[in-house]
């Protein structure tokens, strides 16, 4: 899908490496994608595929011994991969916000919710405490928290997990950012709460034109939410396209494996397809395609690193043997 609007965020050949005592861990290795205003980009992959580190790289929050070693992160044209700490601080929370995976750990347990919300506003705008407090109250109301005035004066432990994640979302949206990085924000929640939160985030993004990067390992979540999908494996993007293209006609064997391992009502009673083996250790990764040891189609060619090919406009696949469009998905019933 090609859009004319200028992307809010464009990541080009991003590399984030961790320099540990045991060696260099290439957590993110040549990742490129773009998100446009009001659109949702789903970043999908298993644990350890580099999704979260990609998110932290965008916000400039990679902890030592990790750092961004290459590539560009263009936010509205400005390369923020090389921005100063002060510039990044001004962007964080104001223009680029993040929602974390575990709502039980996101809020500081010893500070009241109003303290944590008001400081987020006052870090970027010189408004009175009272005004910031009123804005916080309205923000809590928008994410569906009943009697926000009262709840503002509560401590995080007085909220349930779902409510805390709403608070975190309200904080992320406080300064009306143009980009939100959401790192598996619904994974720790039960499905009914998950549905409500997905609905609310989608609505808020559509209303405000906020671009959203939704990091998840759950294909069924992105299927309903995202416009485009990037499938990540071992720190690389192995497949990219619109949500329909990728889910209906997966070209990379890994994407096919992922889709095959999602439980479905149509395949009742049949064993789920499994991808054999484990995600490779990113420490001293062997050369060649990182998926070759688990891939049904691997052969001698895969000993060389595959380049990105474009089977169709707007689609990227990093595979020597991409499945051509129209080929049946062997797992469909």
């Amino acid at each position: 899908m090609v859009s004319d609007t200028e992307p809010t965020l464009e990541v080009r050949n991003l590399r984030t490496h961790f320099f540990t005592k045991a060696g260099v861990v290439k957590a993110v290795d040549d990742v490129s994608f773009a998100v446009r205003p009001g659109k949702v980009m789903g970043l999908v992959g298993e644990s350890g595929s580099g999704k979260t580190v990609t998110g932290f790289s965008i916000l400039g929050l990679v902890d030592a011994p990790g750092r961004v070693v290459g590539g560009e992160i263009r936010y509205k044209g400005e390369n923020i991969a090389t921005a100063t700490d002060d510039r990044m601080r001004r962007l964080r929370g104001r223009e680029i916000a993040m929602i974390f995976q575990d709502p039980m750990m996101t809020l500081n347990p010893v500070l009241r919710v109003d303290t944590q919300m008001v400081e987020a506003i006052r870090a970027h705008h010189s408004v009175s405490h009272k005004e910031a407090w009123q804005q916080s109250r309205d923000a809590l109301g928008r994410v569906g928290i009943p009697s926000p005035e009262e709840r503002l004066r509560a401590y995080p432990h007085q909220f349930s997990g779902g409510m805390r994640q709403r608070v975190a979302i309200a904080i992320a949206m406080l300064n009306r950012p143009d980009l939100i990085v959401a790192d598996e924000p619904t994974t720790a929640l039960d499905v009914t709460i998950q549905g409500q939160i997905l609905y609310e985030v989608q609505k808020l993004c559509e209303e405000t034109g906020t671009a959203l990067i939704w990091i998840t390992h759950d294909l069924s979540v992105v299927a309903g939410l995202a416009d485009e999908i990037c499938v990540m494996y071992a720190g690389r993007v192995v497949e990219h396209g619109t949500v329909d293209e990728v889910l209906d006609q997966p070209a990379h064997p890994y994407t096919r494996g992922l889709i095959g391992s999602v439980p479905s009502r149509n395949r009742r009673g049949q064993p789920l397809t499994q991808i054999p083996g484990m995600t490779p250790s990113l420490l001293n990764l062997e050369p060649g395609c990182p998926f070759k040891t688990r891939c049904p189609d691997a052969d001698a060619v895969c000993e060389a690193e595959p380049a990105i090919t474009h089977p169709a406009a707007g689609r990227d696949v990093r595979c020597h043997h991409p499945v051509t469009a129209g080929a049946p998905l062997e797992v469909t019933a």
């Binding site: 964080r92 974390f100 996101t106 500081n108 987020a120 870090a123 904080i171």
Partner: peptide, 8 residues
């Protein structure tokens, strides 16, 4: 980390 992500 979340406090930093708020831009404090």
């Amino acid at each position: 980390k979340f406090a930093r992500a708020k831009g404090l």
